[in-house]
Nucleic acid binder design. Structure first.
Lengths: 157, 157
DNA sequence: CAAGCTGGTTCTAAATCAAGACCATGATCC
DNA sequence: GGATCATGGTCTTGATTTAGAACCAGCTTG
């Protein structure tokens, strides 16, 4: 056996994405970062994650260009973690998870945090799937076209 | 320490969602199911997952109402796993992961599977965040409103 | 009814994870 | 300018999870 499968060269983008952020903590760290958390200790306190885990995860996310480690903006000699634009683009994944959770994991009266339009403080609209021309699509109206088999699969690194 | 944190009563819908499907395999199983896979052996072969893991994951996903186990549609005595509507609603999460992976994890020439509109075989449009009135929103134009503190937090069960 | 498929369960070893001790800087206080 | 605290980690130690393979019982096919 050895280690968990390596999906970083999978032909399916879903698998590659999960290879990076499919673990227990990464998306929670990214969620916090999207809400403005940027210091090691702040992540650690917000999430209750073990410090060693957090250090590992941040290192990995920096290596993969999702975070960058920059000098702290408050002028101190410490550093902070900022999402790159690649990392920020994960906000749609977080929103999709949020909306699914809101729809299916809460009782009708149960309080929950909400993502709102900053101007009007109204909840954002549910995400929808659209065709290239803007038509709304249901899931059964789509299909996955498999990739062509690759000339040379994982050519080392 | 003991076991991984229980997020099933978290006030944040993202955390609750990840509590169910934030592990290494669940979303890959769901991705396959969305593409029509429904038999135990088919999942196992498609994913290369250990059989014990797969059995555990499917049991858990059935327990949480994401799959249901139904008699096989081919008339045999075997069973198959079908997504419930709750499970099907995860397609937006899978699409978000797919689009992020397409945008950030592939070289320009590297082949990949694509999600297309079944009628025209054109790729679907990128997901976008919209306000309640349909205006496009960028991430910085939104914020997360925290939930009211709950009267009685996790009341056993 | 024998052989193979299906859908699991159980076992073991390895890897991962949580928790806390420890430590090296940098900042603060006096 | 030395003591003390905060920051941002690393290291060690067990518990839990995971991968992989072996095993097994109920269908199904020939």
């Amino acid at each position: 056996m050895v280690k968990r499968a390596d999906l970083s060269h999978a032909p399916c983008p879903v698998a590659r994405s999960l290879d990076l952020i499919g673990d227990w903590w990464s998306l929670l760290i990214i969620r916090d970062a999207l809400e403005g958390v940027c210091r090691f200790t702040a992540f650690q306190q917000s999430l209750g994650i073990a410090r060693g885990m957090l250090a590992d995860r941040l290192r990995m996310l920096v290596d993969h260009g999702i975070f960058q480690s920059v000098p702290a903006s408050d002028g101190s000699a410490y550093r902070e973690y900022r999402l790159t634009s690649k990392g920020e683009d994960l906000h749609l994944v977080v929103v999709a998870l949020r909306q699914w959770g809101e729809a299916h994991l809460y009782g009708p009266e149960e309080p929950r945090s909400a993502l709102v339009d900053r101007q009007r403080l109204e909840p954002v609209a549910p995400l929808t799937l659209q065709a290239a021309d803007g038509r709304a699509l249901q899931w059964p109206e789509t299909r996955v076209l498999k990739a062509e088999p690759f000339p040379s699969p994982p050519p080392a690194r």
